[in-house]
Simulated scan of single mutants.
Amino acid sequence: MKTNWERHNPIIELPLEAVRSIVRSHDRESIVQQVNLLSGGLSHTNYRVDRVNQEPVIVRVTKNRDSLLRERNLHTRLPAPVRAPHFMHLTQWNGYGIGIVEWKNGNLLRDQFSQSSAIEMERMGQSIGEQLAAIREVPFNTYGFLDTDLAVQQEFRLTPETFKTTIDSFFSGYSSKWLPVYLIEEILSYVSTNAYLFEEDDSGARLVHGDFNGLNLLMEGTDVSAVLDWEFALSGSIYFDIGNMLRYEFLHMRSFEQGIQYGLNRNGVILTNNWKTLAKLADLVALCSLLNRPVCGENRVKDITNLIKGTIYTG
C-alpha cells in the first residue's frame, strides 16, 4: 500500500526549539519531552510530540497553510460519530503552516489487513462502513473542490460525460508520459465502455474524505479508533472513498467488502448494485490524476500502473 512511494513534498525539518515554541503557542504550560518524525504521510510532514505530564500531540507541517485551515474548519462540521482527532491549534512557523492535532491510539488499518481472519475483516469493514456513513452526513449545495471556508470553489461531478473528458484530460497532459501507448488506449476503451454506470450514482453532493485508506485509519481491535488526515476532503460521490479503500487486494477481501456494505446499510446508505465497479471507476480517476505531474517517482509509477491494470483487466 503505497510501499516505497517517493515523496513529492520533501520532509520539513523542525528544530527542537521551533517545536517547543509551536507547542507553547497553544499551551504555555507544555514542556516538550521527545519529538519523533512519523512515517507514512506523503503530503504533510508529521511529528509526534511527547509532553511532560500531558497527552502527546501531532504537529503537522506544510507549505500549503490553506490545506490546514480547511482541515481545521472541516473538523468543526464533522458529526459526533466521526472518530476524527481534535484539531487543537493552527499557527505558522518560518513561512510554513502548522497544525497541532490530538494524538489518537491505534494500529494502522494497513497493518491489520495482513493478519486478520475473515471474521475480523468483516467486522473491520462494518466499522469502516459506519464511519463512512457518518462522514456522508455532511451535505453540500453542489459537487466539487472546497475552499478554506468549505464552500465549493471549483465544481466537479462525475457523470458519464465528465468521467470521459476528465480521463482524456489527464492523457492530454503529463499522465501520458508515464504509461505505454497500448495501456493508454486500453484505459480509454475501458472508460468509454463503462462510463454509463455513473448514471446510477445517486449518492449526492456530500463529504468525501479524499484519502480514505489503510494509511489514514487507526484501529483498536476491529473498531475504527480514528480517521486521520483530511487535507484532500471534497464534496462528491461516496464511490471516491470506497474506491480508495478497496484499491489494494488483501486476503478475505470479500468478507471486508460485505462488512463495509453492511455498515453502510445499517446506517441508511444504500449502494447501487454495481457499487464495486463504480468504486473502481471513481478510483481510476484518482489513479490517473496521481500520474498527471511532470515528475513522478519510479516506485509510484510502477505501483499505479499495476493498480490501473488490475482495474481495467479484472475490475
Rank of each mutant, 00 (worst) to 15 (best):
G173D: 15
N216L: 09
L218N: 11
T314L: 07
D283R: 04
H86G: 07
Q33S: 09
L264E: 11
N94E: 06
R24I: 13
N9S: 07
I100V: 15
G204A: 02
Y196T: 12
P79A: 11
H8W: 08
T305S: 10
L290S: 15
E231L: 06
Q34V: 00
W103R: 05
I22H: 07
I11F: 09
Y239N: 11
N46Y: 00
C296K: 05
L207D: 05
R247D: 09
L234P: 05
V295T: 08
N292I: 00
G129N: 01
T277V: 06
S21I: 10
A226R: 10
L74P: 01
K280R: 13
D241Q: 06
G214P: 02
G129T: 02
E137N: 14
W93V: 10
N73H: 08
L290G: 09
T162K: 13
F171E: 10
K280E: 09
M121N: 00
G214R: 01
I128W: 04
R70N: 14
G297A: 13
G210D: 08
I304S: 08
I135Y: 05
N141L: 15
S203V: 03
T3E: 00
R293W: 04
S203I: 11
S189M: 15
E199A: 06
E29Q: 11
I12V: 13
G297D: 01
E199W: 14
R293D: 10
F113S: 00
E17H: 07
R83Y: 05
D149Y: 11
S235G: 15
Y182L: 05
Q54I: 10
Q112E: 03
V59N: 08
E257S: 06
N265R: 12
R254A: 11
L109D: 06
I135Q: 05
F170G: 06
L37D: 04
L179I: 04
S67K: 14
T277N: 10
F232Q: 04
E186R: 03
Q115Y: 01
D147T: 05
L179N: 04
E220P: 12
E6H: 14
T305V: 12
E122N: 00
W178S: 06
E199R: 12
G214S: 07
D241C: 02
Q112C: 02
S21H: 13
S116E: 05
M121K: 03
P160A: 09
V52T: 15
R72G: 08
D303Y: 02
T148W: 04
N4T: 06
N141W: 15
L215C: 01
Y174L: 02
V82R: 02
E55V: 14
A233M: 00
L271H: 04
D111H: 03
G243Q: 01
L158P: 14
E102N: 06
D202F: 02
Y196H: 12
A233Q: 08
G125D: 12
L290V: 15
E220W: 03
E199D: 13
E185M: 03
G97F: 07
L158A: 06
G173F: 02
T162D: 14
T142A: 13
L132M: 02
N265V: 01
Y96R: 03
E249C: 09
K309V: 10
S25C: 12
A134Y: 01
N73Y: 15
R60Q: 12
I12Q: 05
F156L: 03
G221E: 08
A205P: 15
Y313H: 14
